[in-house]
Amino acid sequence: MSTLQNRIQATFDRLKATQRKALIPFITAGDPTLDMTVPLMHALVEAGADVIELGVPFSDPMADGPTIQRASERALKNGMTLRGVLAMVAAFRQQDAVTPVVLMGYGNPIEALGWETFAARCAAVGVDGVLTVDFPPEESHVAFEYLQRYDIAPIFLIAPTTTEARIAQVARLARGYVYYVSLKGVTGSGNLDVDSIAAKMPQLRQFLNLPIGVGFGIRDAETARQVAQVSDAVVIGSRIVQEIESSAPDRLLDNVQNFVAGVRAALDRKERL
């Protein structure tokens, strides 16, 4: 039985039944402190998050903009490691057996731990999916083999520049959901174009039977709402990390929760645009 995989699937099924869209916030594990991450995860869920993308910090986050890069640097300075991130998920699972957790990061910390050990640990602590930014399908044979063995969903990125042949390739390997990068650029960039996202969706749906999440460049509740009209999920990263970065320690949970709750309310508003 694949209970872990089903956590993502069950979430999207439940949302579909109530005609709601998934809200997927991203935070970097270990930012701003090691102790804050698990409380932040619970706060995100309370504010209306459906899936949590938990960033595994890396020394050289090439696909990320300055905001998430700074979060990575803070987390590494705090001593965050991949093993530590897995332990945080285990701690989170003690109080939350339902919300899917997806680890997002770069391949090298996983290579260093070993894919088999990593996948086994993911299964043991309750990680549901893994997105390895710099491992495209071509280089994911080993990763895929172990993730599949332990029933962890491999999450892949699709970009505006991705060809149809590659979308088809992703469709064969991906499980859980697919993450559509809404613009050319690094995380946290501006200039998101909802019309071009809408125009891309029919092509993606032609190949993909999985829910499609859209991220990169979603900075406010209204944009999130517009994006959600044409997709199954919105992913918000840099904007939340920014909230974490700029908040005083005693205001941090409230500020993040308020922002996420605002997005949740916008997503759930009944009238059409």
Binding site: A63, P136, E139, A159, T162, T163, R166, V181
Partner: peptide, 21 residues
């Protein structure tokens, strides 16, 4: 596929894969 034995490859974010291709 750009591999020198076990080394090399195209370990890049999807956004850049079409450019590399």
């Amino acid at each position: 596929t750009g591999h020198f034995g076990p080394y090399g490859g195209i370990y890049m974010a999807e956004t850049l894969i079409p450019a590399v291709e």
